[in-house]
Design a binder for these strands. Structure first.
Lengths: 105, 105
DNA sequence: TTGACAGGTGACCATTTGGTCACCTATTAT
DNA sequence: ATAATAGGTGACCAAATGGTCACCTGTCAA
């Protein structure tokens, strides 16, 4: 449950979600490439990447003097399965309920 | 996109997720009832509830001197649809890829 | 081998956040 | 009416967070 907390915390920041989006569009980017996509210095990006890496949302591979960053969707999938879907069920149920009530009118 | 940020931030805290869990198990609890479930003072719980309410994850109804809190799954569902599912797709694809590679061996 | 380039570290600062407390208001029951 | 109960407000504090900077290390190309 502690690992999931790191993922939630990592996802809480818009800059980090933007980084994930950037990697989603184009996987395996370097730090400098990612820096260009955000209105932030390299150091800021580096910190965010470290958080994402700690949450296993991003995995890296060194290639010479470059460090490539890859998106890892597994933790998000885990959140989906263990948490989000649990709360989505009552949503669907509520929709069905509304539909039901409408039909009874 | 701003509303979604509030939801992500609200979900980032374990105490708030615990509150949602408590409401999931038993909807429509009062502040005092929720306070008993967390190792925290009433004021701490109140603050968390305010964050959840601002993110529309919890909706309230006054009933005399009591304030009842209800879980609202809609924002979570929106996150699921707009964000989580987007990242879950490559996960499924990756699984299929692994399966494929295994079968080729 | 010397420079240019990609990345890393530690300190530092401002702001936000989680949490508590003293004190106040509103409603209910006796 | 009065006491007990449920909730609310503002100030306050410690810790975490987002972000920057100066400076350092490692790697590649000419």
């Amino acid at each position: 449950m502690d690992a999931m907390d790191a993922v939630f915390k990592a996802l809480a920041d818009p800059s980090r979600r933007k980084l994930l989006d950037a990697l989603y569009k184009h996987d395996g980017q370097t730090l400098s490439a990612l820096e260009r996509r955000l209105p932030m210095t390299r150091f800021g990006v580096m910190k965010h990447l470290r958080v994402l890496e700690a949450a296993h949302l991003v995995i890296t591979r060194r290639n010479g003097r470059e460090k490539l960053h890859f998106l890892n969707a597994v933790p998000i999938r885990l959140i989906h399965d263990r948490w989000v879907s649990k709360y989505s069920v009552p949503f669907a149920a509520a929709l069905a309920e509304i539909k039901h009530q409408l039909e009874e009118t």
